[in-house]
Amino acid sequence: MLEMIQNDFIFQYGFMQRAFIVGILIAVITPCIGVIVVLKRLSMTGDALSHSSLAGVATGLVAGVNPILGAIVFSIAAAFGIERIRKTFPKYSEVAIAIIMSTGIGLAGILSGFVKNSAAFGSFLFGSIVAISDFELYIVIGLSVLVTLTVVLLYKELFYMTFDEEAARLAGMPTAIVNFIFTLLTAITISISARTVGTLVISSLMVIPVASALQVAKSFRQTVLYSVTFAVTSTVLGLFISYYAGFKPGGTIVLIGIIILVSVLAYKNIVKKALIQRTVKVNL
């Protein structure tokens, strides 16, 4: 086994190096956004926005505009659409997501029929973590810097607004601006990452590591840190396993995330039982 690994050294390939760099960067920034999205009960945002950005790609190609730009614009429009509809149905955030997601899928479905050159369409639809171009590498690095800076600088604002938006406004926070920045950032991150590593990876990295973190974290700060740790772990492990076992990388990363979640739940149960038993013994 060891010999096989040595002969078949994973990092000798440039595309694997890029897969690790981009994978880790995305695994750091996606859960940062994901924590807030999940706590706002908008877990399906990732899917909704990436489907809407497909419609943007199609529109870009039909209208002769840069499709990446189309994707970003549609994703931003969809993100603000969700915010707008969410205010109309305050207690049913998922309604907003369902509406935007269906609109995105429907529009993408119709518009893709009018794209003359399906090859061009395909190349924008298709994202794979093992096929990252130089351009995508740079854009993901830039995006990571932007997201990390924003999350660090607006950490307390984002926390307070997620916990209690009204109180945050009363505390003098420019909630409208912070909301605007966050929504914009979410839309840009999802539309770019979905084109780079694929919709599956991005929408699951937003939610699954956060779900695991919520099981063990003892504070908001820990929730963010655990989410990032779990996301990076599942990406790195997923890439290694998919390389040596010959699995598809996207699916492997997602399933490792699920295995982490199940392990965390099992661990929590065992600890709980042990605690109860100890208490019972002490009481006896």
């Binding site: 706590l39 307070y160 916990f163 209690d164 109180a167 926070m173 003892k218």
Partner: peptide
């Protein structure tokens, strides 16, 4: 919501801490 008592209370120090500061 995964927040400690301290985090919840500290959140309201916003105007004293200021934008972009910790």
């Amino acid at each position: 919501f995964p927040a400690t008592v301290e985090e919840v209370v500290a959140a309201n120090l916003y105007s004293r801490v200021g934008l972009f500061r910790r």
